[in-house]
Structure formats: structure tokens, C-alpha cells
């Protein structure tokens, strides 16, 4: 099945109360801002958000948090110079936080998309972030068992899609997009451009269309085009 091009609001309607939503981006690079804005308008709440950071400034993820839609954040680095929205909610005890080393976050997402039930990693051994977790010595080195993080919906930003849903990214805005696309039941990609099937060189496609369900162009709040072939 090919990906369906739709409006941001229609695309994020896949998100239900209580869902785990994977949100791409590293800071603002790769952040699917239009999809997050649409998610705020959509109104789903009690969400668990998985993202590298916990929002910057007052827009995007920060605005979703400020709207009270998020129960828990799983991220590597919530505290930043402009993370006042998260900081306030956390200090007020209004949001749960699971801090995960950045590489473990990426690998736990990858594991979820790759059918891996867990993995032993040296990252975090002997630190507070490994407390209570199973450890194992393999060939003389200690490892800690980490579990996959599957998502109900992934919201990512890519650069160009073809109408199949094949994606290419742009520079460091790629970051978490490719692994998140594999880890969710429904993946929504906000893209700058959609080209015809065959226009992307198969050798340069980063995310194959099998992982992508919905495509959204910025400024497409009201347009809706079903694409099938």
C-alpha cells in the first residue's frame, strides 16, 4: 500500500488518548512542527512523548506540553536554556520523565522497529540510569539489558517523499526520523516536497516506503488528496 497524502490535521487523527507518540528532531532540526501544531488542535491527551528533547521555547513540543496533553516524556536531554515549559511542569510534578542515554534511546527505537526483544549495552553500566536493570557480563565486559520503545504513531520530518512514501532527509535533520519511522504502528512524515514515483534514485532512499503511512506537506491544512496505485 502506498502512503496517503493528507492534511496535517487528518494525518494526526491517528493519535488516540493515551498513545505513545514518537516525535523526530534534535532541537528544531527535523522537528515536525506542523504535525505537532495539528496534534494540539486534534486534542488527544494523556500522551507519552518520545523525543530527544522536551521542547524548546513556546512552540512545537513545548506548546503540546503547555496544553497539558502529555503525561510522560521519554527523552535524553530535557533541560535546555529554553526548556522553561517542561521545567515548570516537571518542578510542579505535573509530568513524568524517563531520562534515557541518547544512544540507548535510538537503539531502543531501532529494536522496536527491528523485532528485537531487548539488547545488552555497555552504555549506562554503573550509573543511576542502569539501577534496577538486569546486567550481564559478556566476554569480561558488563552490559545492561534495555528494552524496545514501540510507538503507536511516529511524527517525523523528512525532506522529499515520492508518492509511494519513500523518504530522503536533509543534513542533520535526519537524526531520529529513520528509526522512529520503523518503530511506530503509523508513521506520519511531514515533507517539503512530494515527487512522482520513480523520481527518487532508489540508491539514495533512506526510509523505504514500507515504513511510511501518511505524508503531509506544510501549509496543507485543508487539502486532502488520497493517493492509491
Amino acid at each position: 500500500m502506498t502512503a496517503t497524502e493528507m492534511s496535517a490535521l487528518d494525518a494526526v487523527a491517528a493519535v488516540q488518548d493515551g498513545d505513545t507518540v514518537l516525535v523526530g528532531g534534535f532541537g528544531m532540526a527535523g522537528m515536525p512542527v506542523e504535525l505537532i501544531d495539528a496534534l494540539i488542535e486534534h486534542g488527544a491527551g494523556d500522551l507519552t512523548i518520545v523525543s530527544n528533547n522536551a521542547g524548546n521555547g513556546d512552540t512545537g513540543l513545548a506548546a503540546l506540553l503547555a496544553a497539558g496533553r502529555v503525561r510522560k516524556v521519554i527523552c535524553s536531554f530535557p533541560r535546555q536554556s529554553d526548556s522553561w515549559v517542561f521545567d515548570g511542569l516537571y518542578r510542579a510534578g505535573k509530568i513524568e520523565l524517563e531520562v534515557v542515554p541518547q544512544g540507548n534511546l535510538a537503539e531502543r527505537l531501532r529494536a522496536a522497529g527491528a523485532g528485537i526483544g531487548g539488547f545488552y549495552t555497555p552504555t549506562g553500566v554503573g550509573t543511576p540510569l542502569a539501577e534496577g536493570k538486569e546486567t550481564r557480563v559478556i566476554d569480561g565486559r558488563e552490559y545492561v539489558l534495555e528494552s524496545p520503545i514501540p510507538g503507536d504513531v511516529a511524527l517525523i520530518r523528512a525532506y522529499v517523499a515520492d508518492r509511494m512514501g519513500n523518504l530522503v532527509y536533509r543534513k542533520t535533520a535526519r537524526n531520529f526520523g529513520p528509526v522512529m519511522a520503523t518503530a511506530a504502528a503509523v508513521t506520519v512524515a511531514q515533507v517539503s516536497r512530494i515527487v512522482e514515483i520513480g523520481e527518487l534514485d532508489p540508491e539514495v532512499i533512506v526510509t523505504p516506503a514500507i515504513y511510511v503511512n501518511r505524508l503531509v506537506l506544510p501549509g496543507s491544512a485543508v487539502r486532502r488528496t488520497e493517493v492509491t496505485s
Binding site: S76, F77, P78, R79, Q80, F86, D87, Y90, R91, L97, V99, V100, P101, Q102, G103, N104, P122, T123, G124, V125, T127, P128, L129
Partner: peptide, 21 residues
């Protein structure tokens, strides 16, 4: 990554991965 202060918001980023990698 943390001074362990009770009011600090924990944030680790990639430090643990880099340290052992």
C-alpha cells in the same frame, strides 16, 4: 552529567554513550 542535587532536572544526552564508546 548530574550533580545529584535534589531539585536538578536530570539530562544526560549522549555523554554516557560517548564515555564508554
Amino acid at each position: 552529567w548530574s550533580t545529584g542535587a535534589p531539585d536538578a532536572i536530570p539530562a544526560v544526552g549522549g555523554a554516557m554513550d560517548l564515555a564508554i564508546g
